[in-house]
Amino acid sequence: MSFNWQGVFPALTTKFTQDEVLDLSTFQHNLKAQLEAGVDGVIIGGSLGEASTLTNPEKEQLVKCAVEQLENKVPVVLNIAEGATKEAVRRAEEAVAWGASGLMVLPPMRYKADERETTEYFRAIAQATDLPIMIYNNPFDYKIEVTIGMFDELLQLSSVQAVKESTRDVSNVTRLRNHFGDRLKILCGVDTLAMEELLMGADGWVAGLVCAFPRETVAIYRLVKAGRLEEARRIYRWFLPLLELDLHPKLVQYIKLAEVHTGIGSEHVRLPRLPLVGEERSRVEKIITDGLAARPELPDYLSL
């Protein structure tokens, strides 16, 4: 499937049973809600998807399940987060066999590679596959920044097409657009900066709270792109306290709890993560329930 890196791409949570086994039934239920809300693709096995705890056979199950459920209506993107280049290349090759339509790729894990090492890592993956690639640029969490100079080299490879822009610097959207024009598609990777980056010309949004609130997320994106900014601002201002749940080390637990409250997920996580308890749980639950109590009525955004 060919596709453009445009629109809303949920970084899906991975659904587990209480015994930490993949819960494909709940995963499919959430996928159905995402598709009906109008998302433009889904991402499997990202940080929000607890990738570091997933086995390779589990990643295969999730990709194949999503491909079958979505029936080529939107692309399925596999996240690659490996420590060794050979393993990353192997994941890229396997992704094709599993039916994935694209890749999101993090820099090397567990080692702070320099610019040359990071570029060669990405190059090896890109040369191993024809699947379109989005580079995940998140120096805040992963301590490696993919600079404009590195993108200059990487964009010589036709499969490198997009960036998940998570530097938390809104001006970087303009910086990238000034330098690369439309050659590099830009997708905001920070929920609390999404509308700001879309207004500055970002092509899409790799979203987290979309896992619990898919319709509101897609509505904001489509309203912004249609120039209906006051309507988008109204929803975004309501959404912000919820979007801030994406900025915490426990974003997985926070967002999964939100999925429970909206009826499209469970809060089961895989150890060493633990479910929320005590004051922290009460505080997060209040943010969610307050948001639901004031949940805005949405315009007919799907017709835009």
Results as ranks from 00 to 15, higher is better:
residue 1 M to S: 11
residue 20 E to I: 05
residue 222 R to I: 00
residue 201 G to L: 01
residue 99 G to R: 06
residue 8 V to K: 07
residue 206 V to I: 15
residue 218 V to H: 03
residue 67 V to E: 09
residue 145 E to M: 06
residue 251 L to S: 14
residue 162 A to D: 04
residue 214 P to Q: 11
residue 94 E to R: 09
residue 158 S to R: 06
residue 232 A to H: 05
residue 225 K to N: 14
residue 174 T to H: 13
residue 256 K to D: 06
residue 223 L to T: 09
residue 121 Y to R: 01
residue 247 L to G: 11
residue 153 E to D: 15
residue 280 E to D: 12
residue 194 A to H: 09
residue 14 T to G: 09
residue 148 I to V: 14
residue 101 S to T: 02
residue 81 A to L: 13
residue 287 I to S: 08
residue 194 A to T: 15
residue 34 Q to E: 14
residue 198 L to M: 15
residue 275 P to A: 01
residue 5 W to D: 00
residue 108 P to T: 07
residue 250 K to H: 15
residue 270 R to A: 14
residue 235 I to E: 09
residue 249 P to D: 01
residue 146 V to A: 08
residue 32 K to E: 15
residue 87 E to S: 10
residue 23 D to G: 01
residue 114 D to C: 03
residue 74 V to I: 15
residue 222 R to S: 03
residue 127 Q to K: 10
residue 117 E to Q: 07
residue 240 L to R: 11
residue 102 G to E: 11
residue 65 C to I: 01
residue 196 E to M: 02
residue 158 S to T: 07
residue 135 I to N: 02
residue 103 L to Y: 06
residue 186 I to P: 07
residue 261 H to L: 13
residue 1 M to K: 09
residue 81 A to Q: 03
residue 90 R to M: 12
residue 198 L to D: 11
residue 238 W to M: 02
residue 265 G to D: 08
residue 244 E to M: 14
residue 287 I to C: 02
residue 284 V to R: 09
residue 160 V to H: 05
residue 303 S to R: 10
residue 83 G to I: 07
residue 187 L to I: 09
residue 145 E to D: 15
residue 181 G to W: 04
residue 113 A to S: 14
residue 71 E to I: 03
residue 41 G to P: 13
residue 263 G to V: 00
residue 123 R to I: 10
residue 246 D to L: 08
residue 237 R to M: 03
residue 208 G to K: 07
residue 253 Q to R: 09
residue 257 L to K: 12
residue 182 D to G: 04
residue 270 R to Y: 12
residue 84 A to K: 14
residue 201 G to C: 02
residue 276 L to H: 07
residue 153 E to V: 10
residue 148 I to S: 13
residue 128 A to M: 03
residue 245 L to H: 08
residue 205 W to Q: 11
residue 180 F to L: 00
residue 231 E to D: 15
residue 223 L to F: 13
residue 259 E to T: 15
residue 266 S to R: 11
residue 94 E to S: 09
residue 168 R to V: 13
residue 79 N to L: 10
residue 162 A to N: 02
residue 302 L to W: 10
residue 185 K to G: 01
residue 298 L to G: 10
residue 240 L to K: 11
residue 148 I to M: 07
residue 281 R to H: 14
residue 204 G to Q: 08
residue 210 V to W: 07
residue 53 T to I: 03
residue 11 A to I: 14
residue 19 D to M: 02
residue 111 Y to H: 12
residue 107 P to T: 12
residue 193 L to Y: 14
residue 52 S to C: 10
residue 87 E to C: 02
residue 50 E to C: 01
residue 167 T to G: 11
residue 184 L to I: 03
residue 226 A to W: 09
residue 208 G to A: 08
residue 97 A to S: 14
residue 182 D to W: 00
residue 96 V to I: 15
residue 289 T to W: 05
residue 5 W to P: 03
residue 226 A to T: 05
residue 248 H to I: 12
residue 17 T to K: 03
residue 197 E to V: 03
residue 242 L to M: 12
residue 21 V to L: 13
residue 80 I to R: 01
residue 37 A to S: 15
residue 41 G to M: 05
residue 145 E to V: 09
residue 255 I to S: 02
residue 15 K to F: 15
residue 179 H to Q: 12
residue 224 V to D: 07
residue 11 A to E: 12
residue 113 A to M: 01
